[in-house]
C-alpha cells in the first residue's frame, strides 16, 4: 500500500508508463470525484517512499533507470533523493529548487522558470491536494474509482504544452502509485512509487 503522503512527491522528471488504463475521456465514477481525491490526498501531511523511474528516450537504445527515495512534508517540501545511477538530491521547498550532484549544487528559483515551475508545482499541488493550484495550470480529468484512480493533467498553457503533452497520475485513495509524463517530443518517463513505513 502506498502511503499517499509518501508518494506525494515529485518533480520534474517523473514518469511512468503504463497507465492510460483510464483515458481522460473516461467519465469520473460518481462515487469518486476530484474533490474527494483532493481531500484524501490532503489528509497526508508527510510521507516517505521509494521510487523506480524509467525514462524512454528516443536518443538512447535503452531506457535509463534511476531509483531512490521520495519524501514529502506538507505544505511544500518535496525531496527526491536519487541513489542510482549517480547520487543526486533534489529539494524543492517553497519557491526554491536546489539540486546537488557530486560537488556541484544548483539553486534555482522556480518562478524563474515559467513552464517548468508550473509543472513541478502541479506535482506538489497534487501531493498536497491543492486543487486550486492544479486547476490554474491544468485541465483535470479523473477516471476510475477510489481504489484505483487515474488523474490526468493536461497543460493549459501553450508554452508548457510544447514540452509536456500529458501527465497521468495513478493511485489508490490518498496514495500515489505511479506518475507518467508524456513529453511532446515522444519521450516519456514512468515512476513507480512504493510507500515506506507508515507516516502521518
Amino acid at each position: 500500500m502506498f502511503k499517499a503522503a509518501s508518494t506525494r512527491l515529485l518533480v520534474a522528471a517523473l514518469l511512468a508508463a503504463a497507465s492510460l488504463l483510464h483515458g481522460p475521456q473516461a467519465i469520473a465514477a460518481e462515487s469518486w470525484t476530484v474533490a474527494q481525491l483532493m481531500q484524501a490526498l490532503g489528509k497526508h501531511r508527510s510521507g516517505q517512499a521509494t521510487f523506480l523511474e524509467r525514462k524512454y528516450l528516443a536518443v538512447l537504445d535503452q531506457p535509463v533507470e534511476s531509483s531512490g527515495e521520495l519524501r514529502f512534508q506538507a505544505p511544500d517540501r518535496l525531496e527526491k533523493i536519487t541513489l542510482k545511477p549517480r547520487p543526486e538530491s533534489l529539494i524543492l521547498e517553497g519557491n526554491n529548487l536546489s539540486v546537488t550532484r557530486g560537488k556541484k549544487q544548483f539553486n534555482v528559483r522556480l518562478s524563474d522558470y515559467g513552464e517548468v515551475a508550473g509543472f513541478i508545482d502541479s506535482i506538489r499541488a497534487t501531493l498536497a491536494g491543492d486543487r486550486d493550484t492544479l486547476e490554474r495550470t491544468y485541465a483535470l480529468h479523473l477516471a476510475g474509482n477510489a481504489e484505483r484512480w487515474t488523474l490526468t493533467l493536461l497543460p493549459r498553457d501553450t508554452r508548457m504544452a510544447e514540452v509536456i503533452t500529458r501527465i497521468n497520475i495513478a493511485g489508490t485513495r490518498g496514495l500515489l502509485r505511479e506518475i507518467e509524463i508524456l513529453q511532446a517530443d515522444g519521450d516519456r518517463s514512468v515512476m513507480d512509487i512504493v510507500a515506506m513505513g507508515q507516516a502521518r
Binding site: A12, A13, E53, K55, V59, V64, P85, F106, V116, D187
Partner: peptide, 18 residues
C-alpha cells in the same frame, strides 16, 4: 552525460546529446 539523462537536469541536455 547518459547518467545525467536520469536526472531532472537531463531535460535540458537530452536534445543536445547527439
Amino acid at each position: 552525460s547518459v547518467d545525467l539523462l536520469a536526472s531532472p537536469l537531463g531535460m535540458l541536455t537530452k536534445t543536445l546529446l547527439p
